[in-house]
Design a protein around this nucleic acid. Structure first.
Lengths: 133, 133
DNA sequence: TATTTACCTATTGACATAGTAGGCAAATAG
DNA sequence: CTATTTGCCTACTATGTCAATAGGTAAATA
């Protein structure tokens, strides 16, 4: 189950894309439109900046803006940045310790197959697709 | 991310299927073969019995056994029983409160599309498929 | 009657989730 | 140069879930 962090991040990105503006948009506005605590969104926005998905600017007329066109963001990279990993099981997450029982494991190939499906679903969907939906 | 409960339940079911026996199999044996705490497996086995996926019997020669052929169990029903729901977001889980923002929500249809994909993946895969993999 | 098994209730430590609080730093307008 | 607006930073917290563990009771059989 994806957490609010991933889902809210997606809504922030969509909101910014919908403003069709090159200006910085204050988080306060986004928070009001999306009806999410501004304080909580600060944490999320900060992570999006650290992950180079957004650019932030302080001061008057400051705020956040996209660094690419909406069509150039995949939904997958946004969610993965926030959730850490979208792997269905811990042993498939990046930098997971290799499982000692992998050889005899009757489920690993199913998890891998599902992960591939999930990955291509989310990485082939763009922010623009969501805005136009 | 699926929890150990769902993953262990699957391993218990696979283990029982692999014994190719109509006898009851003691949980102690399953726990040793799978290298999982027997105490923890008790909780899981109990839920599988409550969900009518397994049958349990006390006393000597007691234990657990499948109530259907492996080909008649879907992986989806096993995981869903243990995890409660396999929905990717809370608002799509069964008996979730209807979301007041659904009309304006730009993400709900993507989540629904993914849920459909996920659902058909896991409900079209059987326990037998896993045993034969 | 002793043994083997499932089944039951309760508790626990560790961690993640979903925030909140309060202030500092930077940029701009006047 | 000052006030205002904004992002950015550290810290804290309540609640819940996860992954077990502990210790017993009930049922079935040899």
């Amino acid at each position: 189950m994806f957490s609010t962090k991933g889902r809210y991040a997606l809504r922030v990105m969509i909101d910014l894309a919908e403003q069709h503006s090159d200006e910085y948009i204050p988080l306060k506005d986004v928070a009001e439109r999306q009806d999410i605590s501004k304080k909580y969104l600060e944490i999320i926005a900060k992570e999006l900046v650290n992950g180079k998905l957004l650019e932030g600017a302080s001061g008057k007329h400051g705020g956040y803006r996209l660094v690419r066109k909406p069509s150039e963001y995949s939904v997958g990279e946004i969610i993965e940045l926030m959730e850490g990993s979208i792997a269905p099981v811990a042993c498939l997450a990046k930098d997971a310790a290799p499982c000692p029982k992998e050889k005899k494991c009757k489920t690993i190939s199913m998890w891998r197959e599902f992960y591939t499906l999930e990955h291509s679903f989310f990485f082939n969907k763009t922010l623009e697709d969501l805005v136009n939906s």
